[in-house]
Amino acid sequence: MTPVEQPVQGADANTPDRGGELVIEHVSHAYVSARRRTPALDDVTFSIQAGEVCCVVGPSGCGKSTLLGLAAGLLPPSSGRLVWDGELVRVGPNRHIGMAFQQPGLFPWLTVRENVAIGLRTRGNNRRDARRIAEEFLSTVGLADFQDAYPSQLSGGMAQRVGIARALALQPRLLLLDEPFAAVDAFTRLKLQQELLALLKRYRPTVMFVTHDVSEAIAVGDVIVVMSPRPATVRRIIPVDAADRNRSSAQFAHKLGETLECLGVITIP
């Protein structure tokens, strides 16, 4: 766990695999309130290799976001365990993670640059370094000209890029993405997917990417975990080859059909 404890350094184009392995073992989770117990996950087991991009797809509300929250240490599992790099995932702020959400969740009172820098400051970088790294990552996502803008002045796609930049600027070893492109228009989404792929190649974190867009999962993922409806279990784990990613290829269509059939959305005769 050596690199985790150090403040984030500047980006390096030749960063080696910096991710670790995430193992999810027999994890179940239920939300308990005074009136009822709502099961969200039921005995989920799979693992993500270091540097692998794992897309989790499943029907709406099946508990995908819960799984991300567990991996992030935002909440504890009801049973089972999550192991990151040989250690149990601790509930509370975890230094190895970066996270982006469907609603980018930018702080409206901070400028774009400050929004990216605040996480770096929280993790122990000094003001100058935080500012420099934030500027660097904002240029990477093409927002160099919007650093002094406030979130209310951004389009949905731009806000989402800031959200991604904020997560990546922490140089996380585990990147958790919760439908980050679900709220942007289809055209912007395709563009953001390509940008994300390039960024992931460059920084090589381990990634858990939750989405309900199967074509997005094929375009971005190394492996797809197909979940059942709530309470979610793992239905199948589908590997994706580089050849499958080309949206105009027959392999892509085949992979799409296979995944959708597994989800029970279509039947292939």
Partner: peptide
């Protein structure tokens, strides 16, 4: 969402 973001950022 802002709380989740803050926690994820390490607060």
């Amino acid at each position: 969402t802002l709380s989740r973001v803050g926690t994820a950022l390490g607060m």
